[in-house]
């Protein structure tokens, strides 16, 4: 538990962490709350998301435009993990996907196809192809194995190709 904290070794990274926390905690709470619909669970999600951020602070680019999207992605993904864990505990049948926010506006066909992907696939493609993370970095951010990341990327590309063909994007 404590070991990851030792990774934040420079003043700059420490202050980056606090800045991110102050600037994004409310947005991240709102994102998590929309998934979990419960304030205690949403707070847990925000806390867990910040633990993930602390562990990976050296690869977090604090360029504001890029950071906002990344914080939304991490918060939402963490909240979904908690949702799935809670659902398992409650022996509720898992749905494959959780309702995504309707981004609707200004999505062209290619982005619309990406939006249709299951949440985990969409997140991983975003992290890989927009934020430029490699499989190992994505694995650390999402706390899954690099092999799993590679499998999900493969499946996502197959699915995306199907959607592109259907929508005549190719």
């Amino acid at each position: 538990m404590l070991c990851y904290l030792a990774m934040i070794e420079t003043e700059e990274e420490r202050s980056k962490f606090e800045k991110i926390y102050i600037q994004y905690r409310r947005l991240m709470y709102t994102v998590a709350f929309r998934v979990l619909n419960n304030s205690e669970d949403a707070e847990d999600a925000v806390h867990t998301a910040f633990i993930r951020i602390a562990k990976n602070i050296e690869i977090i680019n604090d360029d504001v435009g890029s950071l906002t999207g990344l914080m939304i992605t991490i918060a939402r993904n963490t909240a979904i993990d908690i949702y799935r864990k809670r659902s398992k505990q409650a022996t509720v049948e898992l749905t494959d996907d959780i309702e995504a926010p309707n981004t609707e506006t200004n999505l062209d066909e290619s982005a619309g196809c990406l939006e249709k992907l299951p949440e985990r696939q969409k997140t991983i493609l975003l992290l890989k192809y927009h934020y430029g993370y490699n499989n190992d970095e994505i694995a650390k951010l999402l706390e899954i194995t690099p092999t799993n990341v590679a499998k999900i990327v493969y499946r996502a590309k197959v699915k995306l190709r199907e959607y592109y063909e259907k929508e005549d994007v190719l």
Binding site: V31, A42, G69, P101, T103, T105
Partner: peptide, 24 residues
């Protein structure tokens, strides 16, 4: 894929910027 991901990311940010933050 990178182009689609960039567009989707922009739409995501735009969506959340227009969402009213939870009073909490």
């Amino acid at each position: 894929i990178a182009e689609a991901a960039a567009k989707y990311n922009d739409a995501l940010i735009q969506y959340w910027q227009n969402v009213e933050m939870e009073e909490h």
